[in-house]
């Protein structure tokens, strides 16, 4: 076979696979613009924003959006700050123990989410965290901590340890050196961790289904209920909004060259 032909063949195949990956995001956007009550592709000229108008008027969706936003911000702050301080501690000590601690902190990555969900559910009910905003935010932060530690640690590994040692030997406290020397040089890593944990919380549904019930509703949870009851265009419209928000965050990250870093930090 002609080598050029085979190489073109495989290149086409890989392009097709890449489009398979992008297909759902591409399809859901026009569907949300249908003027009809049912899910279908709108005709070329009859796009309509009516399902978006209905979203804004519907209490269910606006409350869920507000809850989601608060939970995501809180959980991102919690996960990023805890992980930042811990990663610096691990990086400074470089001992056998810190390596062991680091691998223990990554365990939640491997355990199936349903196990985490059950475990948190059983404790959240006892401690009064069940069905509260803070409870959901803490649950999401637990899921995000391993990712944040990986991301920030990989950023730290590019940092010269002598910077920290110089600051300490010149009389700075550990805290002062972290605040004035390390954190400024780690900004991209910290931003990646914060963005990533925000998106993780913003999209999370499995654990949320278990640790919340009536009084806290997040957007993914409402979408979940919507899909199970009946799939209508308003679900497509919310999904489109969520995709667009995620893409915007990804673009911001991309512009700052963080996106690949955050996502490749996802595995150990």
């Amino acid at each position: 076979m002609n080598p050029d032909f085979t190489s073109y063949f495989w290149k086409t195949v890989s392009l097709v696979i890449a489009f398979f990956l992008a297909a759902p995001a591409i399809v859901i956007i026009p569907v949300s613009l249908t003027p009809s009550n049912y899910i279908e592709m709108p005709g070329v000229s009859d796009f309509s924003l009516r399902h978006y108008h209905e979203l804004l008027k519907d209490n269910r969706w606006t409350t869920a959006a507000w809850d989601s936003l608060r939970i995501a911000l809180l959980s991102s702050f919690l996960a990023t700050s805890l992980s930042l301080v811990a990663s610096i501690g691990i990086w400074r000590s470089q001992s056998k123990w810190s390596a062991a601690i680091q691998s223990a902190l990554l365990v939640p990555l491997i355990i199936p989410q349903i196990a985490t969900a059950l475990a948190l559910y059983s404790i959240w009910v006892q401690t009064g965290l069940y069905d509260t905003l803070i409870g959901v935010a803490i649950a999401h932060a637990i899921l995000a901590v391993p990712f944040c530690i990986v991301t920030i640690s990989s950023s730290l590994s590019n940092l010269d340890p002598r910077l920290d040692k110089a600051a300490l030997s010149l009389g700075a406290s550990h805290f002062r050196s972290m605040w004035d020397v390390l954190i400024p040089s780690l900004k991209p890593g910290i931003a990646a961790a914060a963005l990533f944990s925000f998106v993780l919380s913003w999209d999370e549904v499995v654990v949320t289904l278990f640790v919340a019930s009536r009084s806290v509703s997040t957007l993914p949870r409402e979408i979940w209920n919507g899909v199970r009851e009946n799939l209508d265009p308003s679900v497509a419209a919310v999904s489109t909004l969520l995709i667009l928000i995620s893409i915007c965050i990804a673009l911001v990250a991309w512009a700052k060259d963080l996106s690949v870093r955050a996502k490749s930090g996802e595995r150990q």
């Binding site: 890449a18 990956l21 992008a22 759902p24 995001a25 859901i28 998106v199 913003w202 999209d203 999370e204 549904v205 993914p220 979408i223 979940w224 899909v227 999904s239 969520l242 995709i243 995620s246 893409i247 965050i249 990804a250 996106s259 690949v260 996502k263």
Partner: peptide
């Protein structure tokens, strides 16, 4: 390839 990574499993 990265586009779907930024959209949730649910969506």
């Amino acid at each position: 390839v990265l586009l779907p990574l930024w959209t949730s499993a649910l969506i």
